[in-house]
Simulated scan of single mutants.
Amino acid sequence: MLDIIIVNYNSTDHLIHCLRSVKKSLNGSDAGIFIQDNASTDGVNRILSEFPQVSLTVNPDNLGFAKAVNKALEQGTGDYVVLLNPDTYITNGFFESGMVFMHKHPDVGVIGPKILDNDGRLQNSARGFPNPLTAFFGRSSFLSRMFPNNPFTRRNLLSLRSDGKTPMEVDWVSGACMMVRRKAVETVGLLDERFFMYWEDADWCRRMWQSGWKVIYFPVTSVYHYVGGSSEKKLFRPVIEFHKSGYRLFAKYLDSSLSFLKPLAFTGLAVRLGCVLLSKIARYGVNLFKKHFSLKKFKTDSYEKERAEPIKDSIPLEIKLL
């Protein structure tokens, strides 16, 4: 039996497309589908008309990702659990091939498929555990985009080492789509709810390794992920939560003898946060200006067109006949 858990926050349009792909990929197989909605305002109840079989829980407040997932984990009983973001699209064969692989490899606690952007580009969802250099050579950092094959980025983005078809051990895989063995969850425990959003997947995978469970990148199947289907609706909070959770992960696993590094890490993340926020504000301002300029140009063109049309219509009949 398979359980599928999706946490939704104002991404119901994406969620509907996701559920359609889930239904197609299941191809009639049984699965418990648990939707945890974190107080969305975009009409999440409309999914029930098309998917009456899903279990929908509408939370009165935004509980965060980890806490919402934990609520669903306690509802289900399946031997395997799939965590999905609502802005993902499942390709055919993912559920079946994933469960077959995990059945054949009982020491595997988590697998993560190859995740692609909606335009087909690799999303680098298999990664190494973060270190101080991750801030500069992470998945979306400037240096990684400019020099994708540098050794620091390749150490962090482990999916770059994959041949695209062979399962391989990695430190952690993205929670945007992962299949987890319930027996491993019972050993390791639920997600750490102190992570409101981001980095809870890295923490879970670290605990899996610490408890003797392997984490595998499984590029045999692919999943498409429209990045930020929920978080892009907010300008600042996702960025702030990302850095807060990053510091929480660093502090959680820092050896007590190195506790003096905490202020340094906090300061570094604060500076990085400030830079990212300023960049977002600048991009937002540019986009706002472009929209305003485009709207103004549209109004001007429309006005000129309206002025020209009456003149044409008002030409005296005798002149038209000449």
Rank of each mutant, 00 (worst) to 15 (best):
M197S: 13
E241A: 07
V180R: 00
T221G: 08
E232I: 11
K244D: 11
C177S: 14
W204V: 07
D192S: 05
R248F: 08
M179I: 06
R207H: 12
Q210N: 14
F218T: 02
V227Y: 11
R182S: 04
V215K: 00
P219A: 11
S211I: 02
V227L: 13
K214F: 05
R194T: 11
E200I: 00
G228W: 06
F236M: 10
R248L: 14
W172Q: 04
E169V: 09
I240C: 06
K214S: 13
W199Q: 10
E232F: 07
K244A: 12
F218E: 00
S174F: 03
R206S: 10
D203M: 01
T187L: 11
F195L: 09
S211Q: 05
L191P: 04
Y224M: 13
C205H: 01
F196E: 02
A184E: 06
W213K: 02
V185A: 07
F218Q: 04
E169D: 13
M208S: 02
R206Q: 13
A184Y: 08
D201W: 03
D171M: 06
Y247N: 10
G229D: 07
L235T: 12
D201I: 00
Y198G: 01
S245W: 06
R194W: 04
Y217L: 12
V227S: 08
K244M: 12
G212T: 04
V227Q: 10
Q210F: 12
A184P: 00
W199V: 03
G228Q: 09
K244Q: 14
M178F: 08
D203W: 01
R207S: 10
P219N: 04
K234S: 15
D192A: 03
E193K: 05
T187A: 12
R181K: 01
V215H: 02
F236V: 15
W199K: 06
P238F: 08
F195E: 01
G189L: 10
S211F: 01
V239N: 14
S245H: 03
